[in-house]
Write a protein that binds this DNA or RNA. Structure first.
Lengths: 112, 112
DNA sequence: GCCATTCTTATCCATAAGGGTAAGTATAGG
DNA sequence: CCTATACTTACCCTTATGGATAAGAATGGC
């Protein structure tokens, strides 16, 4: 379940582009075809497809081709890796502040 | 308070590198000098400094130079922008599933 | 004052990322 | 069958990224 560094690299890199973030937001409304997803963007289809592949490689979406149409869908599971990483960071700060608290308490004790 | 797309780009890009993530984790223990932060990595100082600048430009850390030493510190506020973006995504799915629920309920009603 | 320490600046290099065009393939519809 | 649709493949281009080295401040300690 734990994501290694390389996976987080590709996930965060996938997030680091406004076009891709917009696609993810759009997919929050439900599955859509590549051309439907591409429509709002002033971009040729091939480069747009690269964004789709980037999202798929990162595990943020799944795609399936039926007939001519490739349908894309959100894969929320992968977000868990990000949430987990952020959670660890927060816990790290928390433990630091706890240590700081303890240290301050000890100093107060010495003052007595 | 709302972060625009460009800011999110730089924040997520800053996260998309294991060296930088390790630095952030280390800074969770408290402030540190550049050379202390660099010590665990098999990398020359100038490229390492670029990582520090990347983190600073993204607003994820603050740095201050006193004498020869530049001290780096976490700036947890910027994480809020990320958390907020993730939260919006989750709400998006939630609203979708709610709509789906409603739709299914309506279909059931028609069945009666 | 001299020297080691701690960055900093300047430059370079290889690869990847984000965009484009042109032309190809494969299916759906009439 | 023929044509339009919906990608797909194959290239090209420019800029950014992640690394390196070499040499230059600036500060602290003796």
């Amino acid at each position: 379940m734990d994501k290694n560094g390389a996976e987080l690299d590709t996930i965060f890199l996938a997030f680091a582009d406004s076009t891709r973030r917009a696609v993810l937001r759009r997919l929050g409304d439900g599955p859509a075809s590549v051309s439907d997803l591409a429509a709002p963007f002033d971009m040729a289809l091939p480069p747009f497809m690269k964004h789709i592949r980037t999202l798929e490689n990162a595990g943020l979406i799944t795609t399936e081709k039926v007939g001519r149409v490739r349908t894309c869908e959100l894969n929320p599971e992968t977000y868990a890796a990000v949430e987990e990483w952020l959670k660890e960071q927060r816990q790290q700060w928390a433990s630091r502040y706890r240590k700081l608290d303890q240290l301050l308490k000890q100093l107060k004790e010495k003052d007595k």
